[in-house]
Design a protein around this nucleic acid. Structure first.
Lengths: 256, 256
DNA sequence: ATTTGACTCTAACCTTACGTCATACCATAA
DNA sequence: TTATGGTATGACGTAAGGTTAGAGTCAAAT
């Protein structure tokens, strides 16, 4: 009868040598003999037994169960298969539910979702857009703009509208006192209100640390996209810069 | 803001306290504060964060993945959901395959399958059957008979027919030399042939040890069921006893 | 005869997501 | 004041092996 070394059997059956060691240890598949040097040697019977093991393993039976099944001929195979079948059906149902949930979640996200590039810059001509981008890049670097846009695209439309509309009042108040220093007490107080107002859109996503970074990024976004700082119908780029400075100061002061 | 103690949050969210400890340790959910006595206290934010965690956990995301998702707002949630969806679909397909295989296996087993009590004793009148059983019990004990019958019922029809028919020749040879001692060399040689012949029906099921036990059980079966030892049309109960002895001797000698 | 290179052995630690003690500390009500 | 019950840390256990590490073995090539 032919003998297989560990590697040999491993190659034949497509399992790792470690697996054979393990099966040996737990008594699932002992080698036919051990050489003088303790080498495992398997014969044809062991190959067949291994194939049986792999059959049940394919069906996701735990090894302990497999051990029972092939060691104990008294074992009621049909019953085992039936109960295993039930378990698998349950698993399948659970997965179906999860798939449903994922489907719904994605639909939700996609529906309320992501502003397209077009939407992002609607109301501007392409020329204006590229000019705006160019200027922003010159002043703040390409990275800052990229981060701003990436952030913006992650907002839902809902959040985008909220950003544009819900804070008009705070912005008006801030605009009025924008002759003061960005780090003055009065300005900072109003910025704090702005922060609290906006924070709810982030929910609990992100650590506090990343939220401060986001908040600074939002300031840069205000500079990059004039629509946010339209006060009484007119864009106010200087105010956007003032605002960003005030926000950055606020975030930094909160960081420690 | 309201505070939750470990148990409190655990009750609210339906997770164990140990889970909270664990999430704390791996940095997935830190308590808002620790009291003087190191007690964990969670706030509303932590409750929300925990609910997010549980949402993804429900979808079978590993905790590491969840950590990334809710800590890094840059993380592409949709992509993550999509790839997870694919993984789940694959899982489902795999399970479907397994269910198929199980179905087929069970069909196979049931088709070729299990001898009914009727079949087991067809050809005998009920009286003869109960007499046979009674005698066997008297001679070998109830346990031996039960084991024999249990074994027999686990055979497929195919195997049952094989047992009845395929060994006629070996039996005839053995019958001829049944005047010798059961442990004589010549008898044992023939028994070895019988063993090798029959062993193929067991395949690789069972350890060698249990196979020897089975072989002895088979000997008792021959005594209990006269159909196996019909030589040239006549039942040979004495031969059955002789045979069983020879088989037992063979099995015992092989055991060491 | 020796040196490679490919294998082999055992032992031990690592992984996931906690459950389950063990031991000691803390808080509150009767 | 004690009984009761919550809390903390630490350590071990789970399933099925993966992954080194250190040491021994085998056959072929030099």
């Amino acid at each position: 009868m032919q003998k297989y070394t560990a590697k040999g059997l491993s190659n034949l059956a497509g399992v790792s040598v470690r697996t054979l060691h393990y099966y040996d240890k737990i008594g699932l598949l002992k080698p036919a003999i051990r050489t003088e040097a303790k080498y495992r040697l398997y014969g044809g019977n062991e190959l067949l037994r291994l194939q049986q093991i792999l059959f049940f393993k394919e069906l996701d039976f735990p090894l302990k169960e497999i051990l029972k099944i092939i060691n104990d001929p008294e074992f009621d195979l049909i019953k085992a298969l039936e109960s295993h079948e039930q378990a698998l059906i349950l698993k399948q149902k659970k997965i179906s539910k999860m798939l449903d949930t994922i489907e719904k979640t994605m639909l939700n996200l996609k529906e309320k979702k992501m502003i397209t590039d077009d939407e992002l810059y609607n109301g501007f001509t392409k020329k204006e857009v590229s000019k705006n981008r160019k200027e922003t890049i010159e002043k703040y670097g390409a990275e800052a703009l990229e981060k701003s846009e990436a952030y913006l695209k992650k907002l839902t439309k809902e959040q985008f509208e909220a950003l544009k509309n819900e804070q008009k009042e705070i912005f008006k108040t801030l605009f009025k006192i924008s002759n003061q220093a960005p780090d003055s007490k009065e300005v900072q107080l109003e910025v704090a209100r702005h922060y609290n107002n906006i924070r709810k859109f982030w929910g609990t996503v992100g650590t506090k640390n990343t939220q401060w970074k986001d908040y600074k990024g939002l300031g840069e976004l205000y500079i990059a996209d004039e629509r946010f700082t339209i006060i009484d119908g007119k864009a106010q780029p200087d105010f956007a810069i003032f605002l960003s400075k005030a926000m950055t100061y606020f975030a930094n002061s909160q960081l420690k």
